[in-house]
Design a protein around this nucleic acid. Structure first.
Lengths: 334, 334
DNA sequence: CTGAAAGCGCTTACAG
DNA sequence: CTGAAAGCGCTTACAG
């Protein structure tokens, strides 16, 4: 083991430069008044010993750290996209954003957020995961904690991100094109997004008076979609399969291939998410693009607005958009 | 705007409890000696006003924060997997891990790492992106900065993760099964991983004396694979396509479908990465599984070992593994 | 068992 | 233009 030497402090710089700590601080921060000559000398000495200010000490004194924390859960693709958007806004506003991944119960997460809020190192906190009300400043807390709850206890999408109204567009457009038989392949019951897509599907088939073979649900895994198709009766086609995700839809395509059913033709398939692979499968997948990145931007804008004492920005464009591709045939395209 | 009230300090607790700040500290940290009665009283008062210690102040005094920083680039899937592995090891060792995403030049990144290292809030720093040597403690620095450079300037895999030796297994196994004509669909030249896979491919076809139609490279996008297939002469099949990634291979499958070529049969395809979709395309994709998560674990183990003054752990199992699937036909399976 | 005092590394009125 | 001193919120020898 080598001996570890403590990093130099502003006091060290002062001693070596033959000036006071005050002067060092003034020279370095550009505040106060220092003669050009003194400042230059101090800067040179500081550089020569590799001095760098201890940010924790500085922020303890100034109560400004320029750092914001984002709390989220296990890193999955959707959350990454939100983080990217949040990061854009944070650095645009001059802040450094740090990410904390938390796990455990609501109590664990709340504890962690409180720790961050009172730890004295962040100017604001944005949480993507739900926490108990005690962690949410009632507007008077310092620093502010903004909850942009995009994911629930189990990191499942909730809120606007779980909006499923576009499922109705799939059903009504395809019904208008003459399709008469539908089925839904859904995600796990516990997911707000899975329930919402299923509910909108069910309401739509009833409203439009088309036949529904029902709902087949399972894990968010391609195997669920594949198994669903394999379980269909031989005379099921022609059939529209409204899947709750692109991964599920991918499994549906696979199941269709295994049964020798053509898509489009025997089956017509829709997904959800606009995954990277969805524009290159054969056939390409009709889906819904969900703008998680924009959702992240909006959340961070809210935190920054709170910090600046500005009014909260209004949400603008919708986060969802239908993308028509080959898996639903020509109808609805263009 | 509501008035923001500063959070209570240990001094506030002391005043309210009618004891000294010292006693508050002892009661809260469990250090020192306090009578059970006093401690209970202090704890009650602290809880009643919602007191929480300022962690920045504490760590400034104790020089222990229990926090580790990981520096990485734009969050992409591979890095997420490494972060997951690193996080497992960090919390297993009792640390809180925070993530910093940095962008910009080597100088920018180095600056950021130095800031983190000297900022006084982390006990150790692990960087997945390359930084200038000045940021890497020469063993005597405090806190330690460990470089587990998994990605280069442009967030491209390097080092062990860019190992491509298994590309040889694809070529030799398929050659042994009677295949005589090959082609490589590669990623961008600037990527160490793309160059490595291409080089191993080229060396393998020469060594085995099979025909190679050459190398077609482009962006890491499915379109590159699709275009490559569309550009082939009509009499190219039967042909083995060794693609440098699953996304590229997906494009190859798409291109084959557009030309009416069967896979396997006319084309035999291999990918790289074992993407989520690769086991559900038609045909499923033969590929290489790369264990980014384990790479993250190893990197964090190195940092923790450094902190504890323990010898660095030896790397064990290889990070790469071939997965044979339908796209290469029956040969090589099982 | 308890408390007064010093100090972690900074910044910032306030004097000179 | 420069410096001595106080203080941000904690912890920890050291006395009592």
């Amino acid at each position: 083991m080598t001996v570890s030497v403590p990093p130099p402090t502003s006091r060290d710089v002062a001693r070596l430069a033959g000036v006071s700590q005050t002067t060092v601080s003034y020279a370095l921060t550009g505040k106060g008044t220092v003669s050009a000559k003194t400042r230059e000398h101090v800067l040179k000495v500081a550089a020569s010993i590799g001095y760098r200010p201890n940010l924790a000490a500085r922020s303890m004194r100034t109560r400004r750290s320029g750092r914001l924390a984002v709390v989220t859960g296990v890193a999955i693709d959707n959350q990454i996209r939100m983080l990217t958007g949040a990061g854009e806004v944070a650095s645009g506003a001059g802040y450094v954003m740090e990410t904390h991944n938390v796990e455990g119960t609501a109590e664990d997460r709340t504890e962690r957020v409180l720790e961050l809020a009172t730890g004295g190192q962040y100017e604001g906190i944005l949480t993507f995961v739900p926490v108990l009300p005690v962690a949410l400043g009632q507007g008077e807390s310092e620093p502010p904690v903004v909850a942009a709850t995009a994911f629930d206890d189990q990191m499942r999408s909730v809120g606007e991100l779980a909006d499923a109204s576009l499922a109705e567009v799939f059903v009504s457009t395809l019904a208008a094109a003459g399709h008469r038989r539908f089925i839904h392949v859904g995600g796990p019951e516990q997911y707000a997004s899975a329930r919402a897509r299923r509910d909108v599907y069910l309401a739509s088939v009833v409203r439009l008076g088309v036949e529904s073979l029902g709902v087949l649900s399972g894990e968010w895994h391609a195997e669920t979609g594949r198994k669903a198709v394999l379980s269909l009766p031989e005379d099921a086609p022609p059939l529209v399969v409204v899947a709750a995700s692109d991964v599920l839809a991918l499994g549906v395509l696979r199941g269709a291939a295994e049964r020798g059913w053509s898509v489009p033709g025997d089956l017509f398939v829709t997904g959800w998410d606009d995954a990277e692979f969805s524009s290159y499968t054969t056939p390409t997948l009709t889906t819904v693009d969900v703008d998680f990145r924009e959702a992240g931007r909006r959340a961070m804008r809210e935190l920054v607005a709170t910090l600046h004492g500005e009014p909260l920005p209004e949400a603008a464009a919708p986060l969802h958009r239908v993308v028509w591709r080959e898996s639903t045939g020509e109808l609805g395209r263009g």
